[in-house]
């Protein structure tokens, strides 16, 4: 069974503005300026403790910059943690950025192969899956066209099809399904449900709360890089919405504006 265990995991992100990024800077700093003492890192994840078991569908919510994407990338192993214990069992497939992991000038078919090889498929293991991927995308002859002629929704569909056909144990989705039309979304949901039934893990970060509420068994609410609340989706999302409405830790210009207009 796949599982994700995070114990007190920190992630520090280097801040470019605070350090030398060219040899010129390095020389100028070394020769003429005193070393700066300002903090060179921001804490992107702050003591995250988390345990996800097979068959769970976990939603990740929070305001922009709260660390949703960073958390998923840390789970995928893309970002290194700076401290704490981290265990991810099972092969991970991630759908983070629609444009990520594609060559724009390559055809749909070429991109399917590239992406699948990146997931560790071989030409022989992929052979049987190509038809399934093509059928799932419904793209037909369109797959002979370069990717740059695809619409965003279709690229989303393509990467989703490849991800699902590579049969990952853990699927991480970041703000991804929202570009698909209703039909595509229903199709994706059916696949995700099938994955969950097989005991796999799915984690979805996003702002589409209605979707997450309908779909996730559990939700993490992140705030400034740490877990603010972790529990049943219904409950956490309810609290989140309430907090946002009350202006949780923020002064909302929209609220002020509404106030000025006497709404």
């Amino acid at each position: 069974m796949p599982q994700i265990v995070f114990d007190d995991v920190d992630l520090l992100y280097p801040v470019k503005a605070h350090r030398c990024t060219t040899f010129k800077d390095l020389i100028v700093h070394g020769l003429f300026r005193k070393p700066h003492t300002r903090a060179e890192h921001v804490t992107a994840l702050d003591r995250i403790t988390l345990r996800v078991e097979g068959g769970e569908c976990v939603g990740v919510i929070g305001r922009n910059g709260a660390g949703k994407s960073t958390l998923l990338r840390a789970i995928a192993g893309v970002y290194p943690s700076s401290g704490g214990y981290q265990l991810v069992e099972g092969n991970v497939c991630s759908l983070f950025d629609i444009a990520a992991g594609f060559e724009w000038n390559a055809t749909g078919w070429e991109n399917i192969r590239l992406r699948a090889y990146l997931q560790g498929e071989t030409p022989s293991s992929l052979e049987g899956k190509l038809d399934r991927i093509a059928a799932f995308t419904d793209l037909g002859d369109m797959l002979d066209m370069p990717l740059r002629s695809f619409s965003t929704g279709r690229i989303m569909l393509l990467s989703f099809a490849i991800a699902v056909c590579c049969e990952p144990d853990i699927l991480l989705i970041d703000e991804f399904l929202s570009t698909g039309d209703l039909y595509v979304r229903e199709k994706a949901i059916a696949q995700i449900v099938a994955m969950l039934r097989q005991g796999r893990i799915v984690m979805i970060a996003g702002h589409d709360l209605a979707f997450l509420r309908q779909f996730c068994t559990r939700t993490l609410w992140l705030e400034r890089g740490s877990i603010h609340e972790d529990g049943p989706a219904e409950h956490v999302i309810e609290n989140y919405i309430e907090a946002m409405r009350d202006g949780f830790a923020l002064t909302s210009p929209a609220r002020d504006f509404a106030g000025e207009r006497g709404v």
Binding site: R73, A76, G77, V78, V92, C93, S94, F96, D97, A99, A100, G101, F102, L118, Q119
Partner: peptide
């Protein structure tokens, strides 16, 4: 970069 952000390679 586009691939490095998908999975550790």
């Amino acid at each position: 970069n586009t691939y490095l952000r998908v999975r550790p390679i």
